[in-house]
């Protein structure tokens, strides 16, 4: 369904002599905030959490790492561990094992503040297969191989998914490649071949001999909204763009109302994988 929105945006720009230019903009440098990126999955660990700080928008330097933080992960079965800092700002688990149905709480103590993030790992459907199909050239696409997903969707509305596509080992990772979806419109149906790629993402379509790997993630509702807001904000162009706004986070300062908020997400999800070589 996201595809439709994209289509629609393209459609409305089509008849216009519209143009895009990179322009200089003078904006102030925002105060640095804690930025969290971490996950726990139903696959064997270790699981990683990376802590950085936000930087001025036009600053090109790598984001500063947050070292020496104390991170504690606890699951709903009562298991608890303190993460090790394996490289600057990167923290790893060693004992906790992610399990479908469990809830997780991550506590972060960094630079005098304490933050908490809650998540869970939800049920997941299995991938039947991932296939590549040749499509001829049309007015809206180039010819080449497109990657399709096949599999049963779990009955009951309220499932959310992210798909990641890897091309010869490298993840397709332009802003337009971020695919998140929900089961509102397809609940319980067999997904018989939905395209996971479009030509823009890979700078061309897939060719014979390419190695393809697909990861299907069953994610939480809140993480779906996080990713969806992220999609909106990083592809926010066109007549019907939405007003820019901050993307949500599940990492909260334990002192409500504190100015030292955090950004980013600690996400629990499943991972199912399938791969193929295009012949």
């Amino acid at each position: 369904m996201n595809r439709i929105a994209t289509f629609f945006c393209a459609a409305c720009l089509l008849p216009l002599a519209g143009c895009l230019d990179v322009v200089p903009v003078d904006i102030p440098e925002g105060k640095p905030l804690l930025a969290v990126e971490g996950e726990i999955t139903d696959q064997p660990g270790p699981y990683y959490v990376t802590l950085t700080k936000t930087a001025p928008y036009f600053d090109e330097a790598e984001l500063p790492r947050v070292r020496g933080a104390v991170l504690t992960l606890e699951d709903s079965e009562g298991q608890r561990e303190v993460l090790r800092e394996v490289s600057p700002g990167r923290y790893a688990t060693s004992t906790v094992r992610g399990k479908i149905g469990n809830q997780y709480v991550l506590t972060i103590r960094a630079e005098g503040e304490e933050y908490r993030a809650e998540t869970e790992i939800r049920r997941t459907p299995e991938i039947d297969s991932v296939r590549a199909e040749f499509r001829a050239k049309t007015s809206t696409r180039n010819e080449g191989y497109y990657i399709l997903y096949y599999g049963e969707e779990t009955r009951g509305v309220g499932d959310y998914y992210q798909f990641k596509v890897f091309h010869n080992g490298r993840r397709l990772n332009q802003p337009g490649d971020l695919i998140v979806t929900n089961d509102e419109m397809v609940d319980g149906n067999y997904i018989n071949g939905v395209e996971l790629t479009n030509e823009e993402g890979v700078g061309g379509v897939f060719k014979k001999g390419d190695k393809v790997r697909v990861e299907a993630l069953s994610i939480t509702r809140d993480y779906f909204y996080f990713l969806n807001e992220m999609v909106t904000q990083i592809n926010n162009v066109g007549l019907f763009s939405t007003p820019p706004a901050n993307v949500r986070t599940n990492v909260r300062n334990v002192v409500a109302g504190s100015e030292k908020v955090a950004v980013g997400y600690f996400a629990g999800h499943t991972v199912r994988t399938d791969s193929l070589v295009i012949e």
Partner: peptide, 23 residues
């Protein structure tokens, strides 16, 4: 409109952010 004043990276993608969540 709302302009960001900072950025962070998630899944390798740059996300704009504005301090104080102002509009």
């Amino acid at each position: 409109t709302t302009f960001p004043d900072s950025r962070y990276v998630y899944q390798g993608l740059v996300i704009p952010n504005v301090n104080g969540d102002v509009r």
